[in-house]
Every structure is written in C-alpha cells, then in structure tokens.
Amino acid sequence: MLALEKVGKTYPNGVHALERFSAEIKPGEIVAIIGGSGCGKSTLLRAIAGLDRASTGTVTLDNAVITAPHAKIGIIFQEPRLLPWLSVADNIGFGLSDLPADVRREKVAQALARVGLADKAKAWPRELSGGQAQRVAIARALVPQPEVLLLDEPFSALDAFTRRDLQDHLLDLWNDTRPTLILVTHDVDEAVVLADRVLVMRPRPGRLFEAIRINLTRPRDRSSPLFENFKRHVLTSLDRSLDRNVPDADPKTVAGEAMWW
C-alpha cells in the first residue's frame, strides 16, 4: 500500500507547488493524476519516487517512509532518457547490474520480446523512433519488477496513433505482474481508458480537487456511451477545478483539518 500523507512541497525559490496532498493507493491499482500545467503533478511524482523530498508530509510504501529512490519504485519520464552510449539491450538491463550476467541477459531478452523489440537488441538508442524509445524506457523500468511504477506524461510527446498503441501495450504489460501504476497525464481520454481512479488536481498551490472512480471493466471501449460519460465527468471536474469560486471538494484533502480555504 502506497500512502501519501499531506504531502506538501515548497521549492527553495518560494514556489508553493504542492499542498497537503493525501491519498492511499492499493497494490495493483491504476491511478491517473490529471490537472493543468504547473499544478504540481511532477512535483508529487518526484516526491513519491524519492528524487526530491517533500517539504511536509510523508510518502510511505508498505510502512517504509520514502526519502530516496527505492528499489520497489520505478519511474518513466516524458522523455525516454535512454543512455545513448548503451545498446537497447544494455539500457534495459541497466537496473539489473547486481544480477549474474546470464540471468540478466535472460531477463533482458524476455523484456525485449515482451515490448516487441527483439530485433533492436543491438541498436543504439538514436536509431529508435520516439515510440520505440519509450517502449525501451518502459521495459527498463519494468524488468526490476517494481511494486509501484510512476509515469510522468509518458506518452505526451508521441503522435496520437502511437500513444494509443502504447496505452494498450502498457495495460497489457501491467497485467503480467500488476504493479501499482500512477500515471500523470493531461489527456482525459488516456486517464479514463487506463485508470481505476482519476485524481483531479487544481493549481496554486497544487492540491487534490476530486477523486473520480472509473467503474468500467477492461478492456475498455473508447466509443461506448459509458466511456463518454466518464470522460465528461472528468472534463467537468477539470473545468470546475479551475474556477476559483468553487471550493475544494474532496474531504480527503482536508481530512481532520479546519476549513482552511
């Protein structure tokens, strides 16, 4: 269980990026975090990843407080961030250097096949398309079998077709070991197609506005009326989150506190 407990972040330059963000995320759950640019989504994800420390509050994974990168937590960024001097196979095996070489090779080969890039094992990262590179990044994050995988707008730099392809592919991979996924996105369609729960954030300072449960079975039909309904719900919530006259709605954000707005 991943627990976010009133996580807040003020950067050294005084920017109040995140305030009292609380959520509990069950193992295997897929959570999408959606919100406008600059509302603290990346800040939150980096705190969970242990890349930056929260100024207030705590992130705990199975009762261990996260203050630095953790073996059980992986992250995929908007850019693939492959190491250009390593082949595709060596990039995927980057996090496995503790394992014996033959075990590592085996795992890398499996992962390569799993993301459909077996023929690219020896290619350099520069020889890949954007979508292929992001697949490699996904494989690199997944081979150490994290319990939690964080994704920060992982598909937003890709064209619409590749994006859909990778969304489906991600679900497929998730099904292998069912890690917890926390996906930051600004694409409503993406949030509704992937997530069990969509957390809508509002800016200045970034905080949770509303949590929307997506009660749809998988695989989801993007053209069904129900799907459209959930999309509309999320869109409305996003609109309301930007309206200053609407007070913060989610009781979790302010649980046990005075009405502070």
């Binding site: 890349l51 990168p69 073996a71 960024f77 850019e79 961030r81 001097w85 980057f94 996090g95």
Partner: peptide, 27 residues
C-alpha cells in the same frame, strides 16, 4: 541532469554513478 536522475532512480553508488553515467557522458 535528466540522465543523472536515471542513475539515481537505479540507486547507483557514487563510484558507479561516475563509472556508468559521468565518464561515458563526458567522453
């Protein structure tokens, strides 16, 4: 910095960070 963060995520030690990230990057 983005590449260095990859090293941090995989929890490289100081020497490993130098050998596996910094050296090849500055070569």
């Amino acid at each position: 910095r983005k590449i260095v963060e990859v090293g941090r995520i995989f929890r490289l030690s100081g020497p490993a960070m130098i050998r596996r990230i910094l050296l090849p990057a500055v070569l």
